[in-house]
Design a binder for these strands. Structure first.
Lengths: 220, 220
DNA sequence: ACAAATTTTTAGAATCGCCTAAAAATAATC
DNA sequence: GATTATTTTTAGGCGATTCTAAAAATTTGT
């Protein structure tokens, strides 16, 4: 499989997880920052290799093989992200680009060893689950901060938007994975929220609150 | 720079280090296991980018920029090799292939951090020197085992042939970097050598002895 | 349901990297 | 130094990946 094919599979996988139903050519083109005609070309090629189910004008879906391949790439991507953060002290906004390259390295042994070195992590630095060797993976029990009630408490377990700007904002305000957060109050006006982050207090916009995942504490 | 361009630069660099004088199209083709016509194509492209000095029918050499680029790739390759051996417990015969892929990852910060994680190593697992950030590197003081006198002693510091078969042979006989080796005797007949490896003794052929580098001990 | 808007596909071209076969230049030999 | 032999380059083609522009299919709006 070429790098490009791998990138397409990954994009299709991600779209099928979030989006609803079948995946359109345009959606893939947008996700990958390329032209729809290029997508059509590639879909034909992937279809020939039985990695996707594709009929013209009718959208795409991954085959069993395709899904498995996509998961293998995502596994590599996320393991490398953990490596970069844990072993090389990168911050969580820096790792995506580099992992985009590293995810294409081909060596099962390498990934197995890396997995072991890192202690078989289950989640990457953004809180996303790392698929196992056989492609199995479970979503974490999590809730958007914006949907939590006043008085609710939880631990930060991930982000929805993982753009560098958002992640840098979080860093600046000492919000990291594992950080405890409590909802102190909500503003009716714009749905912004007063939250407690450890010892600090902060007022965050609705847009921010709706991109941060918490694992709700038992008591709340 | 594409992966392929990087591979050509690396090949030209290696040929210019060992070979004598200018580098021929055929030599590159052989080194890279490709056809001479493909080499010519690439040389034109590299010349357009001022990475090599090339005039048709007259051989190639690296420009300053080309040499610098080649060294950067070799630096990455060798640092990754150290990483694979030191941190992921690979054996020295397994690392080359994987490092061939990893050497193309683009991120200066990544390499700097990796270098630091490994403690700024000066030599890779085969005893080859790792170029510094600015391309400077010094060859190690070393001698082929086959050229050492009877009674000579030294420490294994590298190999000339780094094929998997040779490296596996060395492993099997407990010959690793840092291992002390003494020349006990030479056979006139076929130039094979009786050597001591730690506590063990071994008879090695001339071919083997002429692919193993030792750093001679002061006394010998 | 039919025209308009949108989405998707085809057609044709460019670039990269490689190949084969043939031509051209250089090197070796007598 | 003329003829071989070798090396190197050109010419033309192929697969992969992308693009633009135009055509075809589908969806939407009224």
């Amino acid at each position: 499989m070429t790098h490009s094919e791998e990138n397409y599979l990954k994009a299709i996988f991600h779209l099928s997880r979030q989006g609803t139903g079948t995946i359109s050519t345009n959606a893939i083109a947008e996700q990958m920052d390329t032209k729809p005609s290029s997508v059509t070309d590639m879909l034909k090629r992937l279809s020939d290799k039985d990695l996707v189910n594709y009929k013209r004008y009718q959208g795409v879906s991954l085959t069993e093989t395709g899904r498995y391949s996509a998961l293998a790439i995502i596994r590599k991507h996320r393991l490398w992200e953990v490596f970069l953060v844990e072993k090389l002290d990168f911050t969580w906004d820096e790792v995506h680009e580099i992992a985009e390259q590293l995810e294409h390295i081909n060596s099962e042994k390498l990934i197995d060893r890396l997995d072991a070195l890192l202690g078989h992590p289950k989640f990457d630095p953004h809180g996303d689950p790392i698929p196992g060797k056989n492609g199995e993976f479970k979503e974490r029990d999590k809730e958007l901060l914006s949907k939590m009630p006043v008085g609710g408490k939880g631990v930060c377990v991930g982000v929805k938007d993982s753009s560098a700007t958002f992640l840098k904002f979080l860093d600046k305000n000492q919000i990291a994975l594992g950080q405890e957060i409590e909802v102190l109050d909500k503003e009716e006006f714009d749905n912004s929220m007063h939250i407690r982050i450890g010892e600090e207090q902060l007022l965050v916009s609705h847009q921010i609150a709706s991109n941060l995942y918490l694992k709700p504490s038992e008591e709340s």
